[in-house]
Design a protein around this nucleic acid. Structure first.
Lengths: 224, 224
DNA sequence: CCATTGTCTTTCGCCTACAGTCTACGGCGC
DNA sequence: GCGCCGTAGACTGTAGGCGAAAGACAATGG
């Protein structure tokens, strides 16, 4: 038994700088999603290593992981290149996202308790405030958190992990679009939460499906 | 222009032993799926390296990839451990698989041409022969190929890659079960192909959903 | 003038070596 | 006898180095 008078959970956890590869991974992912590294660009290991102040090994391992998650293409004996999104691929990815999110909504509707509903409504309200204040970045962030919360309510870890990856890539492809459709999106969120609150699996699925499909529509309309 | 008398496409392509990391990856995956490496077992890099006749680096990169795909757990500063399937996790994974396969069936029903239907029926026939001959291994293999073919017909690469990973893990968890349910499975396959041939998306989805759900049932029944 | 070829530079793939960290075990004090 | 501490071993994390393959470019021959 710990007989010290330490406050139980309040111990700062002694923040240790985790494995270098993870930090390199996150750094690179950040650079890619922010377009600092452009699609098709050749990523030279020694360059990145020097730039980040580490050796090539952690960089290699980070690139390896980025490759399996579809952020970079690892051509043998030639190196890593930032993945170039295809029209078709973006569409397919969105299809999958629709699928995963719709299922999450269904499961959330089946599982959600009153406390959870409250949390969703709080997130939604905050998002609406952000939209009202024209704070696009905050709105996008709240959007991500809301969807993540629904995933959490679904209670399916595997589904959540897959959706997290797919979502992040979708956002990468569709950022210009996503920033456009603020208001309509949050009206749909309200409807979605209502469906979940009622435990109506059918309707939750349908609403979420329509919700993500709207993003696709928006994208295709934008091209013309 | 090539003025040599080389036979056009028949050049053997000079099969090169691809990157070492990939071969290590496949070797390890084989060892895991065949239970030669048991769940929870500590994988020591230097041991594997020595055993495979390579250095630690390719092994590390392979483990890295296996980690992101959920085959091993990579605890920092402690090494790699073969992932231990949980009851809950297996169930969740199966839920996701159901989702992905059902969508694939729907898309296949929407896209399939007559040639494709023929290919499916060939595969199905071969599978039925394997079952009739009590060749369980062949039947399992044909099962995988049939599902892969349907994925291919769906024409969604992203979906296919996700499903391939999920499928392989599901098979790992459920191998003892899958080997049991031979005959019934292939009857369902026939029905599925019929639905796809008719282009009936609704029915294809439903049949595939029922098909994968049966596996879950089988598993839970088995426990009692 | 164009195709081909040889060389040269760049960068990757893999190996070896060293430092940091965790675990296990044995001794020591209580 | 029980529990704590210190030390030793093992393994991971990181760095640096060497050989080899791929691409670029210029020189050469037709």
């Amino acid at each position: 038994m710990l007989s010290t008078g330490l406050p139980q959970g309040a111990v700062p956890k002694l923040e240790r700088p985790g494995p270098l590869r993870d930090r390199v991974y996150e750094a690179l992912l950040e650079l890619i999603t922010t377009r600092a590294l452009q699609p098709g660009q050749h990523l030279v290991e020694s360059e990145l290593a020097g730039h980040l102040g580490v050796s090539r090994q952690p960089v290699r391992e980070a690139l390896q992981r980025l490759s399996t998650e579809g952020w970079v293409d690892l051509r043998p004996a030639q190196g890593a290149f930032v993945h170039e999104p295809t029209e078709a691929e973006a569409d397919q990815l969105l299809t999958v996202r629709t699928l995963l999110e719709a299922e999450a909504a269904r499961l959330a509707a089946a599982n959600a308790g009153t406390a959870a509903i409250g949390a969703l409504e709080d997130l939604c309200a905050e998002g609406e405030r952000a939209v009202a204040a024209d704070d696009v970045d905050a709105a996008v962030a709240m959007n991500a958190r809301l969807h993540a919360k629904i995933m959490e309510l679904a209670g399916n870890t595997v589904l959540a992990e897959l959706a997290a990856q797919v979502d992040r890539r979708v956002r990468w492809y569709y950022t210009p679009v996503a920033r456009q459709r603020g208001r309509q999106s949050w009206i749909e969120h309200r409807e979605l939460i209502a469906a979940i609150a009622e435990g109506d699996e059918q309707r939750a699925t349908a609403v979420m499906r329509a919700h993500t499909e709207h993003t696709r529509q928006m994208y295709h309309d934008r091209e013309k």
